[in-house]
């Protein structure tokens, strides 16, 4: 899995590429923007071709930590395969999911997730 971070004002876009499974999920927490619990992030999942329960756990864990610190985690550009994982596990209720990264950045900038 490759992680690319770009900043857009106070929001960081974390673009993930490849597979997020038990072997790669720990890398997510090494990303500076993810590790910084005070920083709101938009996680771009467009190029994620596989997500398993460990990957999902990493994303849910990130959300929990950032929510405690009043920061936001938004997801964008899910492909149908990844969306299905969120759908069957019921985690769609936990996240705000956008089909466009710039819309997610605007939302994060104007909303305090708390």
């Amino acid at each position: 899995m490759t992680i690319t971070e770009t900043s857009d004002g106070s929001i960081t876009i974390v673009a993930l590429c490849g597979t997020i499974d038990s072997s790669t999920a720990p890398e997510l927490h090494k990303s500076p923007a993810i590790a910084d619990t005070l920083r709101s992030v938009v996680i771009d999942l467009e190029k994620v071709d596989f997500l398993d329960s460990s990957g999902l756990g990493a994303l849910v864990g990130t959300l929990r930590l950032k929510q405690e610190a009043k920061a936001a985690v938004l997801l964008s550009c899910m492909n149908p395969r990844v969306r299905k994982v969120f759908d069957i596990t019921g985690t769609v209720k936990l996240f705000h999911i956008f089909d466009d990264t710039s819309a997610a950045v605007e939302y994060a900038a104007t909303h305090n997730e708390g």
Binding site: D52, S53, L56, G57, V60, V85, I88, T89, G90, T91
Partner: peptide, 12 residues
């Protein structure tokens, strides 16, 4: 969290 994991594996 356990429910999330269990739904994932129940399908996969």
């Amino acid at each position: 969290d356990a429910a999330i994991v269990e739904r994932f594996h129940a399908v996969h």
